[in-house]
């Protein structure tokens, strides 16, 4: 078993708890804007966790893409649609539904834990493995870029097609259609 410095462990738990707390606040906020802001908080905490899990590049991308790009788009949309009306804000289901949803969530958690336990995830027993070595040998960016442009080149290229399709689709769907409006 490898021991971690207390500093490391403390910050891991700290950001983990911040992420969970932000997530809870996120799902409970009525206002879409504050919900989005709490989600951004979760994203940032997750970025920190990534860095601590020997994935600094992913952490950077998380901040750039998720917190920086995707969430900004969400906020743009929220503001664009001007979702301030009470009917739109009071979108939470009634108490009964929330209770059942909570039970379902608990059941889901229980099942996930039962499964991870059954499949005996070694937990802390696993040594800091290959990721750290890869950082040492190829650098934080190279460790991701290497496999991405060699082993996973084809999926990477396919991703570009996916993004192109998404761009075209978003433009097409978002465009004001006069004919449709006329109808």
């Amino acid at each position: 078993m490898e021991s971690y410095p207390l500093f490391y462990t403390f910050h891991f738990y700290l950001f983990g708890i911040i992420a969970v707390a932000s997530a809870i606040l996120f799902v409970t906020r009525k206002s879409p804007v504050s919900a989005a802001m709490w989600l951004v908080s979760t994203m940032f905490s997750l970025a920190a966790l990534y860095v601590m899990l020997d994935a600094p590049f992913i952490g950077v991308i998380q901040v750039l893409v998720y917190a920086g790009a995707i969430m900004v788009v969400f906020l743009f949309v929220i503001m664009l649609l001007n979702l301030g009306q009470p009917s739109e804000i009071a979108d939470v289901r009634s108490g009964g539904w929330r209770l059942v949803a909570g039970l379902v969530g608990l059941a889901l958690l229980a099942e996930i834990f039962a499964l991870t336990r059954a499949h005996s995830v070694p937990g802390l027993a696993i040594p800091r493995g290959t990721a750290a070595e890869a950082i040492n040998s190829m650098g934080a960016v190279g460790m991701v870029a290497g496999p991405l442009f060699t082993t996973y080149l084809l999926p990477f290229e396919v991703t570009s097609v996916l993004l192109l399709a998404a761009v075209v689709g978003a433009v097409m769907i978002g465009k004001q259609r006069r004919a449709a409006d006329a109808r």
């Binding site: 799902v27 879409p32 996930i112």
Partner: peptide, 17 residues
């Protein structure tokens, strides 16, 4: 976090959320 996301999907009605 995943479970929180699930509960959010189940309890909210706002499409963006």
């Amino acid at each position: 976090l995943f479970t929180i996301g699930v509960i959010g999907v189940l309890t909210r009605r706002n499409a963006i959320i």
